[in-house]
Each structure stands twice: as structure tokens, then as C-alpha cells.
Design a protein around this nucleic acid. Structure first.
Lengths: 204, 204
DNA sequence: GCATTAATTGAACACTGTTCAGTTTTTATC
DNA sequence: GATAAAAACTGAACAGTGTTCAATTAATGC
């Protein structure tokens, strides 16, 4: 009862991550347990600890794959210079990705690493790729030498969008937040961009 | 080994909620377990199930108390009519509350109720109280008959602020979000309000 | 063919939320 | 005051969790 070698290490890794993702998508991410994933793979729990340091490590790889899927979804997008239209298109893709993978997306933020611990670099890079897309959209609103400001505004926008989506997902608040997510996103984008333009032109 | 009656029901409730809050503040909210809380109270685990339906119910009451504490903190505040200054003052109180009670605040959002289940009314009311304060701050920016729009904007602002604070707390992203929370909040508030003003005056 | 190394298991440990029969004390009734 | 009913409290129990690790087996290197 040992050493089967039906699969290579890479295959096992692949099986584990996609089994976990499937469980999360079907039964919620709390249903990802060592024994559940092992069963889905047709292996024993111990094998998972041969592939990953612990369950948190597995979670991290699942979220990594989720970020890749989002980037793939977004990579077909290219801005055409109208900041508001671009941003709303980008946000549309982003929001529909999230709403069709709610539990996978939630994992990205809820299974954070242990306190004080920085994420591995490959993980940070995955996030930066997405941020860069956003920055490109709003670039036309800024003078060329204001790259810092541009970056800061992109971050604020991203964080704000994130707040809108997470609040909507928390069932607790859904009746308070009667507006649906796309409407809220639109209000955010329109006003935030108008504000940037107005302040740039010294209107405010 | 039964029926001590050293404390009334109300006192027990109080003991349980504050023991749980203390544990969360000290060791993180994952350290709140039935046996931990019971030990801290000097009672047995079973007693907790005499007071609450289950641990989620206890969590809900802890977050209720957290919301009350926030409201108390905010209740000294009164707007003086300058929307931006008011909002930044309000956000300042809000942000400093969160940063001094990070784990308690995280609980408010991570221990959401079971899917599809609406929160009890008393819980929704606690949140609405906080929202109302925010709405009052930005009221001067809107014509009197635009109460819907005003409410929607307040919600978007709140959600956005929420996004900024949660992203900052997730250790994973703190190096990406190099800006600190108050700076991001300021960027959000300034641009969003300027946008509202500009759009109202037909500048955009 | 033999020794080494790697993969895989399943039992075990300490923990978790939750239930519930049993015990004790308080309260209500006569 | 005695007795019955109700309420409070316990601790053992159950099924689940993450994680470890000796034991077993198969593949590999020589």
C-alpha cells in the first residue's frame, strides 16, 4: 500500500490544485479540507503534505491560479484612450469574472498569509500585472511626468472597486447595499475620474 | 456540578461577548473557540450553547458590539457643512478605530452569515446608523431632492473606504499598496467629491 | 541482484463545533 | 414547609479538522 507512481509530481500538483478549486467552486472554499482534496484525487491525505507545506500553501497556489485566470480574461483588453470608457470596460470584465467565481475570488483575500509574513514574489507579480492594466487606462488623464500620482490613483481605484465587490458578497450587507455592483462601480468611476479631471484643470 | 447561578443570564452574556472580544484582540479572531471562551469565563463549553445558538451567533454579537463601539466613537462628530473637511474628519475617526482594533474589525466582514441568509434586523440597523453619519456629511453637495443619489454616493464612498482598509490589512498586498491608508483615503475623498461637484455643475 | 531513495499510506495526536443525558439548584405551587 | 417543575450547568461523547510519521512498497542507481 505505497508507491504507486500512477502520476508524476507535476500531475499530482495539478490534480490537487484543480480538485481544490473545483471543491471551492461547488461547495464553498470552507469545504476544502485535506481529506476532501485527497479523496477527489484518489490519494490519501498524507500525499497532500508531500506536495505542499500545509493547507495554506495549497490555498496560495489555488489563488495564484485564480489570479492567472483573471489575467487571461483581462488580457484580451486594450485601452483606446478614452479613460472613462476604457475603465468601465475593464471593470466590466473584472466584475463579471468575480461574480462567476465568487468563492475562488474570496479565497484570494481571506486566506491571507500568516501575519507579518510577506507573500512569495511570484504572487506579488501576479497582482502587479493586473494593476498595470488599470494604470494604463487612466494614464491619459495625467501629464506624463505625474507617474507617481497616476500610480496612486490606480491603486485607490482598485482598492475601491475591491471594496464594492467584497461588501456585496458579504450577505450581511446586501440588503443595505441595495444598489447592484455594476451601478456602484459606475458611480465610483464616473465621479473619481471627473474629480481627477476637475482638479487637474483647477476647477475644484 | 450544575446550576451555580453565580451570575444572571445578562451577566453571562456580557462575560461571553467580552471574553471573545478580548481573545480576538489578543490572539486574533481565529483563537475564539468554544472552549477558550468558556475557560475565560470560568464556565464549561456547554454553557455557551445555553447563551447562543452556536459560535457564529456569538461572533455576530461580538461584531454587533464592535459596531456599537465604532458608533460611539463617531457619535461625538458633527458636520459643519464643508463636505470635504467633514468627510476627512469622519474618515479619520473611522480609520483610527479600525487600525486600533484590526482583528475585531476583520470579524465584522469575515464571519458573515451562512450563505443566502439575511442578517437579523438589529444588526442591519447598527450598520445603517454608521451609514447615516456619512450621508449627512456629503448632503451639502446635493440638491435637496436628490436624496437617492446622495444615498447611493454615500454607499459607494463607504464601500470604497472599506476596500482601502481591507486591502491594507491583507498582509499579502501591503507591499503593493505602498501608500498608507490615510493617504489613499484622502485621494479617494478629494477626487470623488470633486467629481460630484464637477458633474453637478456640468463641468465634466 | 542489491542497496538506496522516493512515494504512499493509514493510524495516531491534539484540536475543533456541537449535542445531550445527567446532576444540581432555583423557582412555583399547594 | 414539602413537593413538583423548570432552569442552569457540566462533562463526556461524536464526528470532524490539520498535521505528523513509522511502516510499507515500488522505482532507481550501481
Amino acid at each position: 500500500m505505497a508507491r504507486r507512481s500512477d502520476h508524476k509530481r507535476e500531475e499530482l500538483y495539478e490534480m490537487a490544485v484543480s480538485a481544490a478549486a473545483q471543491i471551492a467552486a461547488r461547495d464553498g472554499f470552507r469545504a476544502i479540507t485535506a481529506r476532501n482534496v485527497a479523496d477527489a484525487m484518489g490519494y490519501s491525505p498524507g500525499t497532500i503534505y508531500n506536495l505542499f507545506d500545509n493547507l495554506d500553501d495549497l490555498f496560495l497556489h489555488v489563488t495564484g491560479r485564480t489570479l492567472d485566470a483573471l489575467f487571461d480574461e483581462l488580457s484580451g483588453f486594450s485601452p483606446n484612450g478614452d479613460a472613462e470608457a476604457d475603465l468601465e470596460r475593464l471593470a466590466g470584465i473584472y466584475l463579471s469574472f468575480i461574480s462567476s467565481n465568487p468563492d475562488l475570488w474570496r479565497m484570494v483575500f481571506e486566506f491571507s498569509l500568516a501575519k507579518e509574513q510577506a507573500p512569495p514574489e511570484w504572487f506579488s507579480l501576479k497582482i502587479q500585472r493586473v494593476m498595470a492594466l488599470l494604470e494604463n487606462c487612466i494614464a491619459p488623464l495625467f501629464p506624463e511626468d505625474a507617474s507617481n500620482e497616476r500610480r496612486d490613483c490606480a491603486r485607490v481605484l482598485w482598492a475601491s472597486l475591491h471594496g464594492i465587490t467584497t461588501l456585496a458578497q458579504v450577505g450581511k450587507l446586501s440588503n443595505i447595499t441595495a444598489l447592484d455592483v455594476p451601478d456602484m462601480a459606475e458611480i465610483l468611476i464616473q465621479n473619481f475620474l471627473a474629480g481627477i479631471a476637475a482638479r487637474r484643470d483647477g476647477v475644484a
